[in-house]
Protein backbone atom coordinates (compact mmCIF):
# COMPACT_ATOMS: atom_id res chain seq x y z
CA UNK A 1 0.00 0.00 0.00
CA UNK A 2 0.84 3.61 0.25
CA UNK A 3 3.35 3.29 3.05
CA UNK A 4 5.66 1.43 0.71
CA UNK A 5 6.82 4.51 -1.12
CA UNK A 6 9.72 3.04 -3.02
CA UNK A 7 13.25 4.25 -2.46
CA UNK A 8 13.72 5.55 -5.95
CA UNK A 9 10.89 8.01 -5.47
CA UNK A 10 12.81 9.75 -2.75
CA UNK A 11 15.63 11.77 -4.19
CA UNK A 12 18.76 11.58 -2.10
CA UNK A 13 19.62 15.17 -1.44
CA UNK A 14 23.02 14.34 -0.01
CA UNK A 15 24.79 15.75 2.96
CA UNK A 16 26.91 18.04 0.86
CA UNK A 17 23.92 19.99 -0.34
CA UNK A 18 25.11 23.52 0.38
CA UNK A 19 21.71 25.11 0.73
CA UNK A 20 20.23 22.62 3.16
CA UNK A 21 23.51 22.55 5.08
CA UNK A 22 23.47 26.31 5.49
CA UNK A 23 19.84 26.28 6.48
CA UNK A 24 20.42 23.58 9.06
CA UNK A 25 23.44 25.33 10.57
CA UNK A 26 21.66 28.67 10.61
CA UNK A 27 18.56 27.16 12.20
CA UNK A 28 20.56 25.20 14.76
CA UNK A 29 22.51 28.32 15.77
CA UNK A 30 19.25 30.18 16.30
CA UNK A 31 17.77 27.33 18.30
CA UNK A 32 20.85 27.25 20.50
CA UNK A 33 20.61 31.02 21.10
CA UNK A 34 16.92 30.64 21.93
CA UNK A 35 17.82 28.23 24.75
CA UNK A 36 19.98 30.84 26.43
CA UNK A 37 17.24 33.05 27.94
CA UNK A 38 15.50 30.00 29.36
CA UNK A 39 18.61 28.63 31.01
CA UNK A 40 19.65 32.05 32.21
CA UNK A 41 16.22 32.65 33.77
CA UNK A 42 17.14 30.16 36.47
CA UNK A 43 20.33 32.03 37.47
CA UNK A 44 20.18 34.40 40.44
CA UNK A 45 17.71 37.19 39.67
CA UNK A 46 18.49 40.88 39.89
CA UNK A 47 16.85 40.83 43.30
CA UNK A 48 19.31 38.23 44.51
CA UNK A 49 22.28 39.85 42.80
CA UNK A 50 21.40 43.11 44.53
CA UNK A 51 22.23 41.44 47.82
CA UNK A 52 25.86 41.04 46.81
CA UNK A 53 27.10 43.05 49.75
CA UNK A 54 26.27 42.93 53.40
CA UNK A 55 27.39 45.71 55.68
CA UNK A 56 27.90 44.89 59.35
CA UNK A 57 28.01 47.43 62.16
CA UNK A 58 30.78 46.16 64.46
CA UNK A 59 30.01 48.49 67.33
CA UNK A 60 27.02 46.27 68.18
CA UNK A 61 29.16 43.22 68.82
CA UNK A 62 30.64 43.05 72.33
CA UNK A 63 34.03 41.51 72.94
CA UNK A 64 33.73 37.73 73.05
CA UNK A 65 30.45 37.72 71.15
CA UNK A 66 29.70 36.35 67.70
CA UNK A 67 27.11 37.77 65.38
CA UNK A 68 25.57 35.70 62.61
CA UNK A 69 24.75 37.69 59.49
CA UNK A 70 23.40 36.67 56.10
CA UNK A 71 25.50 37.33 53.02
CA UNK A 72 24.11 36.12 49.69
CA UNK A 73 21.89 33.67 51.48
CA UNK A 74 24.74 32.19 53.46
CA UNK A 75 25.32 32.56 57.18
CA UNK A 76 28.50 34.37 58.16
CA UNK A 77 30.09 34.51 61.63
CA UNK A 78 31.48 37.87 62.69
CA UNK A 79 33.35 37.16 65.91
CA UNK A 80 34.78 39.83 68.19
CA UNK A 81 37.67 37.94 69.74
CA UNK A 82 39.07 38.60 73.22
CA UNK A 83 42.82 38.93 73.85
CA UNK A 84 42.93 35.38 75.22
CA UNK A 85 41.14 34.03 72.14
CA UNK A 86 43.63 35.84 69.91
CA UNK A 87 46.45 34.19 71.84
CA UNK A 88 44.70 30.83 71.56
CA UNK A 89 44.35 31.24 67.83
CA UNK A 90 48.03 32.14 67.46
CA UNK A 91 48.97 29.09 69.51
CA UNK A 92 46.88 26.95 67.20
CA UNK A 93 49.08 27.90 64.23
CA UNK A 94 51.49 25.12 65.20
CA UNK A 95 48.95 22.39 65.98
CA UNK A 96 46.35 22.51 63.21
CA UNK A 97 47.16 19.77 60.70
CA UNK A 98 44.12 19.02 58.51
CA UNK A 99 44.30 22.31 56.58
CA UNK A 100 47.32 24.19 57.93
CA UNK A 101 46.94 27.95 57.88
CA UNK A 102 48.12 30.64 60.26
CA UNK A 103 45.63 32.80 62.08
CA UNK A 104 47.25 35.87 60.55
CA UNK A 105 46.34 34.58 57.08
CA UNK A 106 42.72 34.36 58.11
CA UNK A 107 42.04 37.74 59.68
CA UNK A 108 42.53 41.36 58.73
CA UNK A 109 42.46 42.60 62.30
CA UNK A 110 43.16 40.08 65.08
CA UNK A 111 40.06 41.20 67.05
CA UNK A 112 37.73 40.33 64.20
CA UNK A 113 37.22 36.91 62.71
CA UNK A 114 34.89 36.93 59.69
CA UNK A 115 34.16 33.48 58.38
CA UNK A 116 31.47 31.68 56.43
CA UNK A 117 29.39 29.75 58.93
CA UNK A 118 28.94 26.63 56.86
CA UNK A 119 30.88 23.50 57.67
CA UNK A 120 33.15 22.60 54.75
CA UNK A 121 31.93 19.03 54.96
CA UNK A 122 28.29 19.29 53.89
CA UNK A 123 27.24 22.80 54.71
CA UNK A 124 25.64 22.71 58.16
CA UNK A 125 26.06 25.72 60.44
CA UNK A 126 28.34 24.85 63.39
CA UNK A 127 27.20 25.59 66.94
CA UNK A 128 29.20 26.50 70.06
CA UNK A 129 31.46 23.56 70.88
CA UNK A 130 32.42 22.19 74.29
CA UNK A 131 36.09 21.47 73.55
CA UNK A 132 36.69 23.71 70.53
CA UNK A 133 35.09 26.99 69.59
CA UNK A 134 32.61 25.53 67.08
CA UNK A 135 31.22 22.05 66.52
CA UNK A 136 29.16 20.96 63.56
CA UNK A 137 25.86 19.39 64.67
CA UNK A 138 25.63 17.22 61.55
CA UNK A 139 28.78 15.11 61.59
CA UNK A 140 30.81 16.37 64.53
CA UNK A 141 33.54 18.41 62.83
CA UNK A 142 35.23 20.86 65.20
CA UNK A 143 36.66 24.29 64.49
CA UNK A 144 38.95 26.43 66.58
CA UNK A 145 38.71 30.09 67.43
CA UNK A 146 40.17 30.93 64.03
CA UNK A 147 37.59 28.77 62.24
CA UNK A 148 40.21 26.17 61.37
CA UNK A 149 39.18 22.55 61.31
CA UNK A 150 40.60 20.61 64.24
CA UNK A 151 38.65 17.42 63.83
CA UNK A 152 37.07 16.01 60.65
CA UNK A 153 35.18 14.93 58.62
CA UNK A 154 35.38 18.54 57.37
CA UNK A 155 38.32 18.63 54.92
CA UNK A 156 38.99 22.36 55.04
CA UNK A 157 38.93 25.34 57.35
CA UNK A 158 35.81 27.50 57.44
CA UNK A 159 35.95 29.70 54.36
CA UNK A 160 36.81 33.38 54.65
CA UNK A 161 34.46 35.58 52.58
CA UNK A 162 35.82 38.64 50.78
CA UNK A 163 35.35 41.63 53.06
CA UNK A 164 36.86 45.00 53.82
CA UNK A 165 36.83 47.49 56.66
CA UNK A 166 34.94 50.58 55.52
CA UNK A 167 35.95 52.22 58.80
CA UNK A 168 36.86 50.99 62.27
CA UNK A 169 33.28 50.06 63.05
CA UNK A 170 31.94 48.80 59.72
CA UNK A 171 32.81 45.96 57.44
CA UNK A 172 31.43 45.27 54.00
CA UNK A 173 31.22 41.58 53.15
CA UNK A 174 31.26 40.74 49.46
Amino acid sequence: MAEKVSKKDVVDHGKRDFLSGTTKAFGAAGAACACYPFIKSMSPSAKVEAQKYTEVDLSEIAEGDTKKVIWRGKAVFVKHRTQSEIALAAAGDKTVSIDPQTDAERVKKPEWLVTIAHCTHLGCVPIDGSTENWACPCHGSQFDVSGRVVKGPAPKNLEIPPYEFLDDNTIKIG
Binding site: L19, S20, T22, T23, F26, G27
Partner: peptide
Protein backbone atom coordinates in the same frame (compact mmCIF):
# COMPACT_ATOMS: atom_id res chain seq x y z
CA UNK B 1 17.35 36.36 11.92
CA UNK B 2 13.95 34.71 11.51
CA UNK B 3 13.42 36.52 8.22
CA UNK B 4 16.69 35.18 6.79
CA UNK B 5 15.92 31.73 8.16
CA UNK B 6 12.51 31.83 6.49
CA UNK B 7 14.13 32.68 3.15
CA UNK B 8 16.66 29.88 3.50
CA UNK B 9 13.91 27.45 4.43
CA UNK B 10 11.82 28.59 1.50
CA UNK B 11 14.54 27.76 -1.00
CA UNK B 12 15.38 24.50 0.76
CA UNK B 13 11.72 23.59 0.60
CA UNK B 14 11.56 24.46 -3.08
CA UNK B 15 14.62 22.35 -3.77
CA UNK B 16 13.26 19.34 -1.90
Amino acid sequence: YVFILAILLYFTKKRI
